[in-house]
Design a protein around this nucleic acid. Structure first.
Lengths: 334, 334
DNA sequence: CACAACACTGCAAGCGATTGCAGACTCAGC
DNA sequence: GCTGAGTCTGCAATCGCTTGCAGTGTTGTG
């Protein structure tokens, strides 16, 4: 039913090969012919059949995007960034949600790999070995995870943590608690490194309160332990955790920021809607998605390993001060 | 690099056609041969090339999913449902986000249509005519929107609204405000119908306060007008709007539910995290995604228009009572 | 004016699968 | 023992497009 290359060729009075060239390698065909072909294509509303093209070129024009959990508002933002950038380059994106399951993730990735030119793995939960293996079979770009030899776009965790600590220190905080994310989380591990560095530089005591699910309930679970540390401020793995923490603190009658300051990370939309509104480190999530696509496109055009190693983006966060942080309470008071 | 049909054929000592049949129409080939072929395929890790198959069968094994805005937590839930169900049937899903733009939506749909066997349009913003046109060119299933002759899965808006009103009436409310969604929203239009029906049956005065963006800011904007109606309770287009409304009410020192009760619709994850936690009508969002896939799959298998007309799912909502609703305040008091 | 260089265009061979048609073989029935 | 039905299997065409190679026509140069 839809017009084929032959139809265009017939209408333009040229051979199919000429049509093909006129459309995909315009430079190589005579200007007059090209115009005729383009007019014909236009008139017929010709759209090349992707399957046929893919069959011969080996490229599908599709990319895959794998995220751990769409219900976590962090990821939809990244997805939007990917979508928008991909559309500009006329590539379609397959989306897959792994439900935070590292095993499922690898299975899904393998399945998707066959149907796409490349994959963007956002905050993958899989092991480093698995990721390296996958990266060898397919074109892969990582987001929010760094693995030797695999192109990636990450956030400057250390810088973000430094901003958070500097802010808290300026408010007089000297004992700061850290609520960690999942044990296997790459970003959780790296955030704490930045945190220690900043804490050391500022003479601040950092109190770790363990690992929690990156969710509202995780935050609820962490709250009491965070309070028990005697810290005057707490930094959490992400905003969702901070929001859960806020809820539990309120339930216990602990006032934020009067008794305790809270800082999140991500700046999801919800964070400005809480009471008090959450101070947080804003991560350029959409931007990350966008850059990831650009990286992937670059890799596809030039799969030279040497070039790839260099292609790595680090995005900087920005401290957003809202109402959940205030001057340190007198630790002697309560 | 990957094994092809020929490779399998060579290894099994049969012709490619036999391999093809052994794998996709097992019944038609001799048991012994079939076993040999399957063993060979297994050993080579053979995976049929989708592009090649698609070229000849005209089916891609992919479906497209179009949503207005992933940043609205309602949609990720639907997407998850679609994903999960699609994966079971080994179909991949293309995701597209239209940014709430009706024009962009149609463009995107047309572009996607070429690469998929069918489309799921979730809460489409496009006009009825456009949707009908698209449905004629492609296999389409609608979610949260009804258009004559197009298979769809929708929510029982009337039933949901009845539950909300019944709840409020039981609490003594007799003047109830309605904060509408976007003018072009199908569900907004249908919710108000249900609302009027329920209001009439219960001798309740329904006060409309106009149309607002389906967002937190929309809710903020609507709050003062809702208060000005003198209603003792307000029902909003969705939870996001309710949450924005809650925030504005709090800023104005209006207590919920003491001074005013608030009911949302959707039950997004955020709704249990607000203060007070939001009473709302829970919509089975994931389920909707799942059913939509099943409908689409059914349509693909049997594109007979007569069958299609019948295939229509209505999902029922469930009132979730939390803390934003209480007994009606004495209207004379303020 | 002859010849080389160049710019276009067309032919035809695939890419990897599916499928209609016909040939080969088996087996039952007479 | 021969025919006909029935069961498998293989041949070859085809889906729509890309691309190496060869052929044609044009232009420039000596």
């Amino acid at each position: 039913m839809p017009a084929t290359l032959r139809d265009v060729a017939r209408l333009a009075g040229v051979s199919p090969s000429t049509v093909s060239r006129a459309l995909s390698t315009p430079a190589v065909v005579n200007a007059a012919t090209r115009a005729r072909v383009q007019a014909a294509a236009e008139r017929l509303g010709y759209q090349p059949n992707r399957a046929a093209r893919g069959l011969i070129t080996g490229r599908t024009g599709n990319i895959g995007l794998v995220v751990p959990d769409l219900a976590n508002p962090f990821f939809p933002s990244v997805v939007k960034g990917v979508q928008a950038r991909a559309r500009q380059s006329d590539v379609a994106v397959f989306l897959a949600d792994t439900d935070e399951d590292a095993v499922e993730e690898v299975v899904l990735v393998r399945a998707l790999a066959k149907q796409v030119d490349g994959l963007i793995l956002c905050s993958p939960r899989a092991s480093e070995e698995d990721l390296v293996a996958v990266a060898q079979e397919t074109n892969v770009v990582l987001v929010n995870r760094l693995v030797e030899g695999v192109p990636a776009v990450t956030f400057d965790n250390e810088g973000g943590m430094r901003q958070a600590i500097a802010h808290l220190v300026a408010l007089g905080h000297r004992r700061i608690a850290w609520v960690g994310g999942p044990k296997t989380s790459w970003s959780s591990a790296h955030r704490i490194i930045g945190l220690y560095a900043a804490a050391n530089d500022n003479g601040v005591a950092l109190l770790e309160v363990g690992h929690f699910a990156p969710t509202y309930d995780g935050g609820m679970a962490a709250a009491d332990q965070a309070v028990a540390t005697g810290a005057t401020a707490v930094v959490t793995y992400n905003d969702l955790v901070a929001i859960g923490l806020l809820a539990r603190l309120h339930a216990r009658g602990i006032s934020v920021p009067d008794d305790l300051s809270v800082v999140g990370i991500d700046d999801i939309a919800m964070s400005r809607m809480t009471r008090p509104a959450l101070t947080t480190v804003r991560l350029p999530k959409q931007k990350a998605g966008q850059i990831a696509v650009e990286l992937l496109l670059a890799v596809l055009d030039d799969p030279d390993p040497d070039t790839i190693i260099g292609t790595r983006g680090t995005l900087h966060g920005e401290l957003i001060v809202r109402d959940s942080t205030g001057v340190a309470s007198d630790p002697a008071r309560p």
